[in-house]
């Protein structure tokens, strides 16, 4: 017979200890759990009843003794991924680094309008960037009156993290005009770029 001494332990530790012991036991083996408070005794009993094992409870002074025989397998569900969808499937593992507020080389006016289309279309794309970094003239996209501000705010709300180079903001004297994302530094930006699955440089 196996014994778990959960005296002096606060919930949920007795539950964790009991479940672990059960998983390691073989069928028809008996487990004895020692507890010192009413709440734990009730909760452990409840959990074992959910596992469809019959429990007997005796109380001696302040000590509760729970005896249970393992019948059947402890319910396990190895398909956690099926049930819990916290991973926002719309966020992919790529990062966009905006180094200027235009797209491509050649005609300057075309470059400006292309960049606007690029950013404004991002919220509609299925695979959204995990993070976006703004450097040098790229910071102009993230300040007040930027033509793409609404799209950037939408992306931020949908889970994309936005980092804007503080040195650049300072150089262009736009620190007080940051309208989206947070002020960052070379160290953090480097980390982001180095740990990204891939980086796009529009």
């Amino acid at each position: 017979m196996k014994t778990v001494d959960a005296r002096g332990k606060l919930c949920p530790v007795p539950l964790i200890m009991t479940k672990k012991a059960l998983t390691e036991m073989s069928e028809n083996e008996t487990l004895e759990v020692l507890l010192d408070n009413d709440t734990s005794a009730k909760n452990v009993t409840r959990m074992l009843e959910e596992f469809r094992m019959s429990v007997s409870l005796t109380k001696n002074g302040n000590i509760f003794k729970l005896t249970v025989t393992k019948t059947g397998e402890v319910p396990e569900n190895s398909h956690a991924e099926d049930f819990c969808e916290i991973e926002n499937q719309e966020i992919s593992n790529y990062v966009i680094a905006f180094q200027r507020n235009t797209l491509g080389e050649g005609n300057a006016d075309l470059g400006i309008i292309l960049l606007k289309a690029f950013v404004n279309t991002l919220p509609e794309v299925n695979a959204k960037p995990r993070k976006m970094v703004f450097l040098n003239a790229g910071i102009f996209l993230a300040i007040n009156d930027s033509p793409v501000l609404e799209a950037l705010k939408t992306l931020e709300n949908m889970g994309t993290e936005i980092l804007v180079c503080g040195t650049c903001l300072d150089f262009y004297e736009k620190k007080n005009e940051l309208a989206v994302g947070k002020v960052s530094n070379m160290y953090d930006i480097l980390e982001v770029l180095a740990t990204a699955g891939s980086v796009l440089y529009p």
């Binding site: 309008i113 292309l114 606007k116 289309a117 690029f118 404004n120 279309t121 033509p147």
Partner: peptide, 18 residues
């Protein structure tokens, strides 16, 4: 806003105004 012309609209130009 300047956006990319949606796929379902056939257009000579890839950019549109919204």
């Amino acid at each position: 806003d300047i956006i990319s012309t949606p796929k379902e609209i056939s257009s000579a130009c890839g950019l549109s105004i919204r």
